[in-house]
Amino acid sequence: MAETTNLKTLPLHALHEAAKARFGGFAGWNMPITYPLGVMKEHLHTRAHAGLFDISHMKLIVVSGKDAVELLSKTCPLDPAVLGMRQSKYTFFLNEEGGILDDLIVTRLGEDRFMVVANAGNADADIAHLQEAASGHDVKVEPLDRVFLALQGPEAEAVITAAGLPGADLAFMTGFEPKPGWFMSRSGYTGEDGFEIGLPVEEAEVLVEKLLADERVEWIGLAARDSLRLEAGLCLHGQDITPETDPVSAGLTWAITKAVREKAAFTGASAVLAAIAKGPAAKRVGLKPEGRQPVRAGAELFDAEGRQVGTVTSGGFGPSAGFPVAMGYVEAGLATPGTRLFAEVRGNKVPVDVAALPFTPHRYRKG
């Protein structure tokens, strides 16, 4: 178990203790890693039914005011002005070199009001980044103290409907404020349909108990969240994307529209545009190890001649896929699915094939 001294505690920690969670440290927080169901069953339950995740370590930040669009246009490769009401968009904060400081989801809640969802380990830096950029502008950057929950899986919509919650009419990557202090979006980090709900701490326990009373719902820990997102080919900041990784190498330029590229008003624009023009030296790819042994983050990748050609950034077993899954970066010329490489695992060379992502199909609600 990871060391939990000096870690921040989730507002609903007592509920997780009562559910007999096993805890560990992640991004400065004492997080439920698994529950008695176990990682494999938690993962498969989410794919088949509905899993409930406490993601209160992540941060909700409201950006509002006359200059909100200008602020987000400058700090992200994004044009907030063209987002429709309730529309969400995946984007990033970049440094001047085009490196990814964090990946985010921005949702338009009003003419000059946006919700930014930031990753736990980067939350303080993200808030400071926004506040510094907001200096001298008519814009407010407001971090919220909320319980943040994710309900993920094919039965998620039926569960929220049975619980009397709004949101069943949302399409994937849309969000709104159903009542004061609440934020709800149809989104997630598993490849499944689902919802993320931010709400005041004092209202959260009642909601959790209502959701868990539904036999289709189980608590799901951080370990299964990781295997679910890895099967879905979704990046984890700090592993698959970092301040040293640009969106071109990461295969994320789809998040930067042609109009945003042409305007080039965002921080890091010149570096990103140069990288697009030049093409990446390395590309993020899926990796499928031969056999049943997972290949973990940090393993080096070699070609048939023994030359190092890449590195694994995330790896584990894919319970739904039925085999080990991984992601990493390889030289661009070797990024074609089917290319045979070798990962060094405890002194042994394990055959690994470059694979198309995702390993399991996304099942988002499109309409």
Rank of each mutant, 00 (worst) to 15 (best):
P77R: 00
H362W: 13
A168P: 04
K366F: 03
V312A: 07
G167T: 08
V106H: 01
D138R: 07
L60D: 12
G38H: 10
F172L: 03
A281I: 01
S56D: 09
R363F: 06
G191A: 13
E231T: 02
N6L: 14
L211A: 11
H362L: 08
D124V: 12
V63E: 00
I55C: 11
L52Y: 10
L252N: 07
L144D: 10
L234T: 01
V201I: 15
S270A: 15
I256Q: 00
R284I: 06
D103C: 05
A18P: 04
H129F: 14
T311V: 06
P178S: 05
E231F: 01
G198S: 14
T339K: 07
F302A: 03
A332E: 15
Q152L: 07
G338F: 09
A264W: 04
A297L: 08
A120N: 10
L228D: 00
A118F: 01
L234E: 01
T267I: 15
G28A: 11
G316K: 03
A133N: 10
A48E: 15
W182C: 07
P361V: 05
R108C: 04
L149N: 06
E231V: 02
Q131E: 15
G338W: 07
K366P: 00
A213W: 02
I33N: 00
F23C: 09
Y364H: 15
E111S: 13
A133T: 06
L301M: 02
G286K: 04
L165P: 10
